[in-house]
Amino acid sequence: MSLVRVLFYFLSFIAIASALYAASSKNLVRSIFVFFVTLFALAGLYVLALADFVAVTQVVIYVGGILVLILFAFMLSGKETLNILQQQQEKLFSLKKLPALLLAGVFFIVLINVVLKADVDNLQWVKDAISFKNEITPNAVMIDNIGINLMTRYLLPFEAISILLLMALIGAAHLSRKEGKV
Rank of each mutant, 00 (worst) to 15 (best):
A129E: 02
Y9P: 00
F8P: 00
L82F: 04
L69R: 05
A19T: 13
F36Y: 15
S162G: 08
F40I: 01
V182G: 13
L82W: 07
Q58I: 01
L155S: 05
M167C: 13
I161T: 13
A17T: 05
K181P: 01
K26W: 04
P138D: 05
K133W: 03
A15F: 08
E179C: 05
E90D: 14
V4W: 05
N134G: 09
F72V: 03
N122R: 10
A49S: 15
L156D: 06
L155Q: 04
T81I: 08
L102D: 00
L71T: 00
K26E: 06
G65I: 08
A140N: 07
D52H: 08
L166E: 03
K26R: 13
K79Q: 08
L48V: 14
K127T: 11
Y21K: 01
A118Q: 08
L166H: 04
Q89H: 14
F72N: 07
P157W: 06
L169S: 14
F107H: 02
D119F: 04
L150Y: 12
I146K: 11
W125A: 10
I161M: 13
L98Y: 05
I112C: 05
S2G: 12
G147F: 12
Q89C: 03
N113V: 05
F36R: 03
S131A: 14
K181H: 14
I70Q: 01
R30G: 00
V141F: 05
R153E: 12
V110Y: 08
F132R: 06
K178C: 04
V60I: 15
M1D: 07
I148R: 10
I136F: 09
F132I: 00
E179R: 13
V29L: 14
V182Q: 14
N27G: 02
K97R: 14
